[in-house]
């Protein structure tokens, strides 16, 4: 899909809470074997998708010193909305100073809600409707107590400001979306925890959609794995993105900078976005990045970005993903974890 006006990412910000929970505690508590990820990032009691989205967006604005009043859309993609009805986006928009001349809405498409917002932000700028649009993917991932998902659910995400290609640090060469109705993972309204299809979430869901989207965009652009410097995939665990990468012909070192789930877990709608932010932190002008998300339900958004020389000026302006990764406070008690994850509350 191409825009009328070429667009790209002009700035970005991220957020990961400082709390880290050892998944070996889950194994002890539930009597299960060790999970694939040793530690998960979890939100503090005063954090949620909204507070995290505000920080990521504020950092994106601070990075380039952009006047928030120039932002014409604030779109938050998440599946952990603090209000089921009342947009997180309006609170973010108000907090960063983008109101009142702005569009706002929350996007839901499980783990690809953030990239849906990116797709739309690219279109908003690309159509000439806006000079700048802000897309955020952020989650405090939920899971049923004792379920396999509990072993991988993390918290975090990133925000991307889209603008014209000439101002961008990474311009958008091509984008594509691949969607079918596939109920591999879902949560009914009013229930706190999701259901999932176990192994069905693998091949028919993640791999079918992600690989199809990746292959289609490579076909459209005529590019193959060797034409890219980096690939960022949705990362529910360390294995899936590594396997997908291999199947698409990518080398491990192309995927490594954008692979954060081994350290913080699956940040749902924030997953591919925070991987992209970490990749941009190290990317150099001229390098090409493939970003492919996956959201249950199901679908994948694929983007081809080429980094411009404007990226150098932004380095060091705000804390990189590594700073958020490196700050940590251990929570090694299931009770405290459950309180932080809002699974139990003071009566």
């Amino acid at each position: 899909m191409k825009q009328q006006i070429p667009v790209g990412i002009i700035s970005y910000g991220c957020y990961i809470p400082r709390y880290r929970f050892k998944t070996s505690v889950l194994s002890e508590v539930w009597g299960e074997s060790l999970g694939p990820i040793p530690e998960l990032s979890i939100p503090g009691p005063d954090e949620d998708t909204i507070t995290m989205a505000i920080e990521a967006s504020s950092m994106a604005l601070r990075k380039i010193g952009l006047d928030p009043k120039k932002i014409r859309a604030v779109w938050v993609g998440t599946e952990s909305k603090p209000y089921a009805v009342k947009p997180s986006s309006t609170i973010v928009a108000e907090a960063i100073g983008a109101t009142p001349d702005v569009s706002a809405a929350d996007f839901e498409f499980a783990c690809k809600a953030g990239t849906e917002a990116m797709q739309t932000a690219a279109a908003f700028v690309g159509s000439g409707m806006a000079e700048y649009a802000l897309a955020i993917g952020m989650d405090t991932a939920q899971s049923k107590p004792g379920d396999t998902l509990e072993f991988t659910a993390g918290a975090g995400g990133a925000a991307f400001i889209f603008g014209k290609k000439e101002e961008s640090i990474a311009w958008l060469e091509e984008s594509y979306s691949y969607v079918t109705d596939t109920p591999d993972f879902f949560r009914r309204a009013n229930l706190p925890f999701p259901e999932h299809g176990g192994r069905f979430t693998g091949e028919p869901a993640y791999f079918t959609h992600l690989l199809s989207a990746a292959r289609k965009i490579m076909e459209i652009t005529g590019l193959s794995a060797k034409d890219f410097d980096y690939a960022v995939f949705h990362q529910p665990n360390p294995k899936f993105p590594s396997l997908a990468g291999k199947m698409l012909g990518f080398k491990p070192e192309q995927i490594e900078p954008g692979l954060l789930s081994p350290y913080i877990g699956n940040t749902y709608a924030g997953s591919s976005l925070i991987g992209m932010a970490a990749t941009l932190d190290v990317a150099k002008p001229g390098q090409r990045i493939l970003m492919v998300s996956f959201g249950s339900g199901a679908g994948s958004d694929a983007f081809v970005f080429t980094v411009t020389d404007k990226i150098e000026a932004l380095k060091g302006k705000t804390p990189p993903v590594k700073s958020y990764l490196n700050r940590r406070k251990e929570v090694n008690d299931y009770g405290l974890y459950a309180i932080f994850q809002k699974k139990i509350k003071r009566g």
Partner: peptide, 8 residues
């Protein structure tokens, strides 16, 4: 210290 936005 620096300001952040959190749930109060």
């Amino acid at each position: 210290v620096e300001m952040v936005i959190r749930k109060i």
